[in-house]
Amino acid sequence: MNDDTSKPEDDKAATTATETEATKPDEKTATAAATPDPIEALKAENQDMRDKLLRTIAEMENLRKRTEREISDTRSYAIAGFARDMLTATDSLSRALMVLPAEARDSSDTTIRSLIEGIEMTEREMQRLLAKHGVKPIEAEGQKFDPHKHQAMFEVPDPSRPEGTVVQVVQAGFAIGDRVLRPAMVGVAKGGGATGAPAEGTIDKSV
């Protein structure tokens, strides 16, 4: 006698087999999606290497420029300390010439005249050598007071000059390149307003 009644276990096994077959394509798709495209991977690696190369080139160029600038600064400012000491000697010669009385220059004594001429020649030669190595005087008289280049020693009441104008130089200042070796010691105008006319409401105390 044939038993047409299906066993539950057989039906469950058939269903599981069907589901397994149905899920196989999805698993293949997921596996394919998880595997990176070798061409895209190579493109990404190539882009990364290119970026690193460009950064390295830029860094090397910056280093080259910085090194050139440092070498240039060293050449320009290496004698700054020596030049500053030379200025002290030059000042001494200038002061020696300033204190000489006028009659000494006109003296009939050949020795005195030769001594004065020798001092003057030495001062000029020292100034020439300083200029040859880039040490130049700072413009001061008639200029607007600049605290980076000038050192104010006193104020001069002068209503005819704009306020803050350098009207007297006590000691010349010098610079080497863009650096100040020493500021110029100056007297600065006071009381002239912004354009040189007496400031409104001020009183000229020099009268």
Rank of each mutant, 00 (worst) to 15 (best):
M1E: 11
D3I: 15
K7V: 07
K7D: 10
K7P: 09
P8G: 12
E9N: 12
D10F: 08
D11T: 12
A13Y: 08
T15H: 15
T16G: 00
A17N: 10
T18G: 03
T18V: 06
E21H: 07
A22C: 02
K24M: 05
D26Y: 12
D26Q: 13
D26C: 04
T29S: 14
T29R: 15
A30P: 05
A30C: 14
T31M: 11
T31A: 15
T31C: 08
A33T: 11
T35R: 07
T35F: 03
P38W: 00
I39N: 06
I39G: 06
I39Y: 09
L42K: 11
L42H: 07
K43A: 10
A44S: 08
E45W: 03
N46D: 12
N46M: 09
Q47M: 14
Q47E: 14
R50D: 01
K52D: 04
R55Y: 08
T56Q: 11
T56D: 05
E59Y: 08
E59F: 04
M60S: 13
N62A: 15
N62K: 14
R66G: 12
T67K: 11
E68M: 08
S72T: 08
S72C: 04
D73H: 02
S76I: 09
A83C: 07
L87H: 02
T90R: 09
R95F: 13
L97G: 10
L97R: 05
M98F: 08
E103L: 12
R105C: 08
T111H: 12
I112K: 07
R113M: 02
R113E: 01
I116H: 11
I119M: 07
M121I: 10
T122G: 04
T122K: 06
R124S: 10
R124H: 11
E125T: 13
E125M: 13
M126Q: 03
M126W: 01
L129Q: 09
A131K: 15
A131V: 06
A131M: 10
K132R: 15
K136R: 09
P137E: 04
E139D: 08
E139G: 11
E141C: 14
Q143M: 10
K144W: 12
K144Y: 09
F145L: 03
D146W: 01
D146P: 00
K149N: 09
K149S: 06
H150R: 07
Q151G: 01
A152L: 11
M153T: 10
V156N: 02
S160F: 04
R161W: 02
P162S: 08
P162D: 07
V166G: 01
Q168M: 11
V170D: 08
A172S: 14
G173R: 01
G173C: 01
F174I: 01
F174Q: 00
A175W: 00
A175G: 04
I176N: 00
G177P: 00
G177I: 00
G177Y: 02
R179Y: 01
R179D: 00
R179F: 00
P183S: 04
M185Q: 15
G187Q: 02
V188F: 03
G191N: 11
G192W: 01
G193W: 03
A197D: 11
P198S: 04
G201K: 08
K205R: 15
V207Q: 10
